[in-house]
Amino acid sequence: MIIRVTVNGTEFVRDVEPRTLLAYFLREHCGLTGTHVGCDSSSCGVCVVAIDGDRAVKSCTMFAVQADGHEITTVEGLAQGAALHPLQQAFWDCHGLQCGYCTPGMLMASYVLLKHHPNPSEPEIREALAGNLCRCTGYQNIITSVQQAAAEMSPQPVEA
């Protein structure tokens, strides 16, 4: 089936099997390997991407054909050239990552969180990121990272 998906602003027209999971579409058909896969049971969240800007989905739990005509944002779409997104900067500043495997999913879940909720408290961040597992950091520095990014981003209204 031929689909058209806009990923990080670029349109990809590809012929895919209906059973192709969005995660593998992004990784193997679009060459965007920042989106990872860590489980088969929709449990880990390392595959999270944003669809149409404001909904975070586990891209292993959606078929690529369902993204036909939609816009997907992946971790590769966060930075504007050399300029890191405040979330990326904050994860770096606050040691919000170790092995980096969960990081793209964490960033994308946080990205959508901040769209809905520009100033989340620590408990709200813990709640919002509970669909994303991390085996390395114990989450504490991830929470701090999101708080720093929120503070950085809040003076001005968020823009796409």
Binding site: R27, G34, L78, A79, L84, F91, W92, G100, L107
Partner: peptide, 16 residues
């Protein structure tokens, strides 16, 4: 961390 810039950009390179 000096390794972070690639990971936060989704540019880490894992086996898969």
């Amino acid at each position: 961390r000096k390794e972070d810039p690639r990971f936060i950009r989704g540019a880490g390179r894992y086996v898969d």
